[in-house]
């Protein structure tokens, strides 16, 4: 099977990027070192942009010092931070569904950088909210911080199937969030509300023992249900909801096991339902350079920090 994808950074202020400079662009054949055009068309010519820009990359994401204005330690596994963005950085640029950043505490070395989903963005305050699940050395170091972080971003490829969210209008949507995966639900719910979609959410506290999206979603008038930790139960609940609410789009925020389960439920329902999933590839640089997020699909190595996959069944 051939996988089709767009580059999430194409048409953004960050294209052409380092990959163009190193002849590794994921869409342009000429910027892969080939002689002639055979691109994965993005609606514009990346090579032309590259030439116009003087054969070099455009803007690159700089690290910003951000102040922590609020810190809530929910339990030993979970902390929630509100940070203030210094101008000219604008929280609007961090408010698209699937936006993530790299964070580290101010004095730790660069390899402490941690990819983290933007849970909410407040444009009036120019603030961002992050939830951190304590897992290993990087997250342990991060939750001890009280003053501020070094933030690098925005990166945009945190959810796969973004086009379904952007195109959804007047649809019945279901958001499923488990554990820290719930953090990605809020910006998605906000985008869907702009499209006048009906939203229901299914939440499970998972390993963080806390439904962190609950309050945010309630404020957005999203109908919320909870599911127990057993995935067997989830299958039945989702199948019932699909029928009851005539669900046309599902977002799965959680593990790949959860994604697979949801996908199989959609197939079982034999309805045409758009599936959007959280991107769980391991992000390290976010720029397509380090290779930590690359997955070999078929004959192609796909860099999941850049590739907005458009077909994965369902």
């Amino acid at each position: 099977m051939v996988f089709t994808y767009k580059c999430i950074d194409a048409l953004s202020p960050y294209c052409p990027c380092y990959l163009a400079e190193t002849q590794s662009c994921i869409v342009c054949s000429v910027l892969q070192g080939k002689d002639t055009c055979d691109c994965n068309w993005q609606g514009f010519c990346v090579y032309q942009e590259y030439i116009w820009n003087g054969r070099k990359k455009k803007n690159f994401r700089k690290a910003l010092e951000v102040k922590i204005s609020e810190k809530k330690v929910i339990n030993e596994n979970l902390a929630i931070f509100k940070v203030m963005l210094p101008l000219p950085a604008s929280s609007r640029d961090f408010s698209q569904p699937g936006t993530f950043v790299f964070l580290k505490s101010l004095d730790s070395p660069s390899y402490f950088e941690l990819p983290l989903c933007v849970m909410n963005a407040n444009e009036d305050e120019n603030s961002l909210i992050f939830a951190v699940q304590v897992i290993g050395p990087k997250t342990k170091s991060l939750v001890q911080e009280n003053r501020g972080f070094l933030l690098r971003g925005p990166y945009f490829n945190g959810v796969l199937g973004l086009k379904h969210i952007k195109a959804a209008k007047g649809k019945n949507c279901l958001l499923i969030g488990r554990g820290i995966g719930q953090a990605s639900l809020v910006l998605i719910a906000k985008a869907l509300i702009r499209g006048e979609n009906e939203i229901a959410a299914l939440l499970d506290p998972g390993a963080i023992n806390y439904n962190l999206a609950e309050d945010y979603l309630k404020k957005l008038n999203v109908a919320i249900k909870f599911f127990e930790k057993e995935y067997l139960v989830l299958g039945d609940i989702v199948l019932n909801l699909i029928k009851e609410r005539n669900i046309e789009m599902i977002y799965s925020g959680g593990s790949d096991i959860q994604h697979d389960l949801v996908k199989s439920i959609i197939i079982q329902s034999s309805r045409k339902i758009d599936l959007v999933i959280s991107n769980n590839a391991l992000m390290c640089c976010g720029e397509g350079v380090c290779g930590s997020c690359a997955v070999t699909l078929g004959s192609e190595k796909i860099k999941f920090c850049k590739a907005q996959l458009e077909n994965w069944g369902a």
Binding site: V30, C45, Y47, Q48
Partner: peptide, 14 residues
């Protein structure tokens, strides 16, 4: 003929 990348690389641009 074209597309744009070829016109950029081997001509005077689009």
């Amino acid at each position: 003929s074209g597309p744009m990348g070829n016109c950029v690389k081997y001509g005077n641009g689009c």
